[in-house]
Amino acid sequence: MTAQIRLVEITDANRDAVIALRVHPAQEKFVASVETSFRHAQAYPDAKPWFRAVYDGDTPVAFVMLSWNLVPRPEWRGPYFLWRLLVDARFQGRGYGTAILDEVVRLIRADGATELITSYMPGEGCPEPFYRAYGFEPTGEIDAEGEPILALDLTGR
């Protein structure tokens, strides 16, 4: 299946439905909740958080958050950093993660990005295989939380 998605701004009208999105319990150690993501975005405005609900039709299925075109500093990677990608447990395995990355890549390339960076918490069931299959490569760096850094070269895509 090729997922048909659209990225939607989060408003008072859809906030509760987006906050209700949850990964499988076994994945919770790898992906912070939407509510935690909102707190992070509010606490770290210098990270230039940009987030959207991901809809399939009228149904919210996922949440994505990036640092959007920030000036990199030791505590912030960038300029484009995939901070959060959360696909609700009910909708996993249907191509949404790939469709979300396709749309994010399209948007940030249009903004002039040449690279998308992310990190992951290692462990059984972590998202590393998904990111590697998409084309992210290890940089050899580890962030302050012990998460390996991956980069996706957008110049050849």
Rank of each mutant, 00 (worst) to 15 (best):
T2H: 10
A3L: 01
Q4G: 02
V8P: 09
A13P: 02
R15N: 07
D16S: 14
V18S: 06
I19Q: 09
L21V: 12
R22F: 05
R22G: 06
V23L: 14
H24E: 14
P25Q: 11
P25D: 13
K29Q: 14
E35T: 13
E35Q: 15
T36E: 14
S37E: 11
R39P: 01
Q42W: 13
A43L: 14
A43N: 15
P45V: 11
D46F: 03
P49N: 10
P49Q: 03
W50A: 06
F51M: 12
A53N: 11
V54D: 01
Y55M: 14
D56L: 01
D58E: 14
T59F: 03
T59H: 06
V61C: 10
F63R: 02
S67C: 04
S67F: 05
S67T: 08
W68T: 03
W68F: 07
N69H: 08
L70H: 10
L70P: 10
V71H: 09
P72G: 11
R73Y: 11
P74I: 09
R77L: 15
G78L: 07
G78H: 04
G78P: 10
P79C: 10
P79Y: 00
P79T: 10
F81H: 11
W83T: 05
L86S: 02
L86K: 04
L86P: 01
V87K: 03
A89K: 14
F91N: 02
F91K: 01
Q92N: 04
Q92W: 00
G93Q: 03
G93F: 02
G95V: 02
Y96Q: 02
G97F: 00
T98C: 07
I100F: 00
L101K: 02
L101G: 03
E103D: 15
V104P: 02
V104K: 00
V105C: 13
V105I: 12
L107C: 08
R109W: 09
R109N: 03
R109I: 09
D111Y: 08
T114L: 07
T114P: 01
E115P: 00
E115H: 12
T118Q: 03
T118E: 05
Y120E: 03
G123L: 07
G125C: 06
G125M: 06
G125D: 06
C126G: 09
P127E: 04
P127K: 03
E128K: 13
E128P: 09
P129Q: 04
R132T: 15
R132N: 12
A133L: 07
A133N: 15
G135N: 07
E137M: 15
T139H: 12
T139W: 14
G140F: 15
G140M: 14
A144L: 10
E145C: 06
E145S: 09
G146F: 10
A151W: 04
A151P: 00
T155A: 10
G156P: 00
G156C: 04
R157V: 13
